[in-house]
């Protein structure tokens, strides 16, 4: 485990060096890319809690990512248009204050995770994969055909939301906010995983009967984990809206669920830094291959297959094992 910790520290240093490199070389796009990696890593970290540690595979996390994104977009657009969200029974105004938007995004996507989780956790295995997908698809089609917030055209907010004391339109400041949130999320997850609750969650994956025998209802543990997971992914969605100053139903499509899942598996499931490594590798490949050839998706597929076949347990699994052996 110590070896993996070293590797994690190297990851953090590498990640931090990218925006600095961007500043030095005057290539702001590097900062945008690094921010994207950080946000997607937060989304992946949320999924990793249920998929990696809890052992139940959600194919519907795009729903939480998108709901978080829309919470941010809707609040900001109401604030920019000076038009309250509801006027009755009491007035709720929009806001552009991140300190309000981000917790609210977590609360609402967590709430949806509670509802969806309550219905879905009755199933398991492949059935769980598909029922979570079903709920995500419902949200997706709803967003496409709901005209109030742009439907498929999406919702532009033009400016990033505000954070006290920082100019969020400056790429580096926004990166810093996201980065701090990522570290915070990873810290929380490592605390959860090593707590009694986390142990119950992980043993419910292998042996639900034994967990039940000590008087804990496995489904309750799993539901709580699912809600936390949904809330974290919702946070990432809200930040993603800020990164692009725009949100649209495309973040709700099943491709997003698939991509978040790919980050987690690629980096290594049930590894704290797995989602970060996976997201970083995916974005680097996309940028690098996309720069060389129009058929970059072919080569991306090719490389992913090689990784699955020859690197059991994802990138971190491969590296950690190598080090253990030699």
């Amino acid at each position: 485990m110590i070896k993996e910790n070293y590797f994690n520290i190297i990851c953090i240093i590498l990640l931090l060096s990218v925006p600095f490199l961007g500043l030095i070389l005057d290539e702001p796009y590097y900062i945008t890319l690094a921010t994207k990696v950080v946000i997607l890593a937060i989304a992946g970290a949320g999924l990793n809690l249920v998929l990696g540690y809890g052992g139940f595979v959600s194919f519907g996390h795009a729903a939480f990512f998108g709901i978080g994104g829309y919470v941010s977009g809707i609040l900001a657009s109401h604030a920019l248009n000076y038009y309250p969200i509801i006027e009755w029974p009491f007035i709720i105004e929009g806001t552009t204050q991140m300190l309000i938007i981000l917790p609210l995004a977590m609360l609402i996507s967590g709430g949806f995770a509670f509802l969806i989780g309550m219905l879905c956790l009755r199933t398991s295995g492949v059935y769980f994969i598909m029922i979570t997908l079903a709920f995500a698809q419902m949200v997706y089609y709803f967003a496409i055909s709901w005209p109030a917030y742009g439907g498929e055209d999406g919702l532009s907010v033009y400016l990033r939301n505000n954070f006290p004391g920082l100019n969020t339109m400056d790429g580096f400041s926004f990166f810093s906010i996201c980065f701090v949130l990522l570290i915070f999320v990873l810290f929380i997850i490592s605390r959860i995983v090593n707590s009694n609750f986390g142990l119950a969650l992980q043993s419910a994956k292998q042996n639900p009967e034994r967990v039940a025998a000590v008087g804990i209802e496995p489904i309750k543990v799993q539901l709580i984990a699912f809600v936390i997971s949904g809330a974290i992914t919702g946070l990432a969605g809200a930040l993603y809206t800020d990164l692009n100053r725009f949100v649209s139903p495309s973040v709700l499509s099943w491709h997003t669920s698939g991509e978040i899942m790919v980050f987690v598996i690629l980096g290594g499931t049930a590894r704290l830094f797995g989602p970060l490594v996976g997201a970083a590798l995916f974005i680097i490949l996309e940028q690098f291959l996309g720069g060389i050839t129009e058929n970059w998706q072919f080569w991306l597929g090719f490389i992913l297959i090689i990784v699955v076949l020859f690197a059991k347990g994802g990138i971190i699994g491969m590296i950690a094992k190598e080090r253990r052996n030699g």
Binding site: L51, V57, G125, G258, I265, W296, Q297, G301
Partner: peptide, 17 residues
């Protein structure tokens, strides 16, 4: 199952392109 999902997802990219 997760490895299967990742590998066959990669196959989709490969075949489509």
């Amino acid at each position: 199952h997760l490895d299967q999902v990742l590998a066959t997802f990669a196959l989709i990219l490969l075949f489509s392109e």
